[in-house]
């Protein structure tokens, strides 16, 4: 009796765990089935090379490049903000800051990551854009610059927190060895500690990039809804995610070609983040072994 009960419990628990596999399969299936139907009407070649994305207009174009450029542009700006600041914070907290300061500041910074993204979108549109317009009068009301900057602020804790963990995990004996030879903290940090923690730092950067690429509300609110193949950060653009939101808010018929565009856009997004996540998982696994 007891054995059967134990077995039933184990199988129930296992089923719960298997749900996660079902979710992944579900995502892949849903995206690819709809995308395959989409590509039976639109050639993959056009999708990848056409420089216009106008599925909701009378004259339809289905080139993903404008959405992709919008996504990459906003992500690039975000990383340019978050990487230097996040990395500096992690080195400062791990190598310089007094323990009590570090303990107090880390959760406060992590609070930045817990703020709903719609709130950041508000901040970008209502505060940062008008502020930047004071310096650049030509800046459009919707633009990738303020969306990117605010997104950068949002992902600072991703970089600072994970990198700090990695730096902190470097054995103290290496620090002592370096100090003992007359190195300053700065030299020790950059010549010994950062190289030793490099895999953890790289993981944090990859995760931040993946987060930026998939971020939706900030760009949907502040970057605009005009798919445009450009590197100009001052004009409105549209990201893959913002496009999906735009279509979802409208009245698009289930099963129509327009409806399928969001899955084609979705599978593009999923592919990018999937590759990045897999890469970071690989590096993390290797790095765990290094310290064990």
């Amino acid at each position: 009796m007891r054995k059967i009960k134990e077995l039933i419990i184990e199988k129930t628990l296992m089923t719960s765990a298997l749900i996660t596999i079902a979710v992944t399969l579900g995502i892949i299936l849903v995206l690819s089935i709809e995308a395959i139907q989409f590509f039976s009407e639109v050639s993959i070649f056009d999708f990848l090379t056409d420089t216009q994305w106008t599925p909701l207009f009378t004259e339809k174009h289905f080139g993903i490049l404008p959405l992709l450029s919008g996504t990459l542009l906003t992500s690039f700006i975000a990383i340019s903000v978050a990487l230097p600041i996040g990395l500096t914070i992690s080195i400062y907290l791990s190598e310089y800051a007094p323990k009590a300061f570090r303990k107090a500041v880390k959760p406060l910074l992590e609070l930045l990551a817990s703020i709903p993204t719609v709130v950041y979108g508000f901040f970008a549109l209502v505060v940062v854009t008008p502020f930047l317009q004071g310096f650049f009068p030509d800046l459009a009301g919707f633009n990738s610059l303020s969306a990117g900057i605010v997104m950068g602020i949002m992902i600072i804790p991703y970089i600072s927190s994970i990198s700090e963990d990695a730096l902190h995990a470097v054995p103290a004996s290496l620090r002592e060895a370096s100090y003992g030879m007359g190195a300053t903290k700065l030299q020790t940090a950059f010549k010994v500690i950062v190289p030793a923690a490099s895999s953890g730092i790289i993981v944090s950067i990859i995760l931040a990039i993946s987060r930026a690429i998939g971020e939706t509300m900030i760009v949907a609110i502040a970057a605009g809804q005009q798919p445009r193949l450009t590197l100009d950060p001052t004009v409105p653009v549209e990201t893959i995610t913002a496009y999906i939101v735009q279509v979802s808010l409208g009245d698009v018929q289930h099963g129509s070609l327009e409806y399928r565009t969001i899955f084609a856009a979705g599978i593009t997004l999923f592919t990018f983040t999937f590759l990045l996540n897999t890469l970071s998982y690989r590096i993390r696994k290797k790095y765990q072994e290094k310290y064990e």
């Binding site: 995206l31 971020e215 969001i262 899955f263 979705g266 999923f270 999937f274």
Partner: peptide
């Protein structure tokens, strides 16, 4: 991997 999937994909 699932932890890194963008939330909008869950929406789809």
């Amino acid at each position: 991997n699932l932890a890194g999937v963008p939330s909008i994909i869950y929406g789809l």
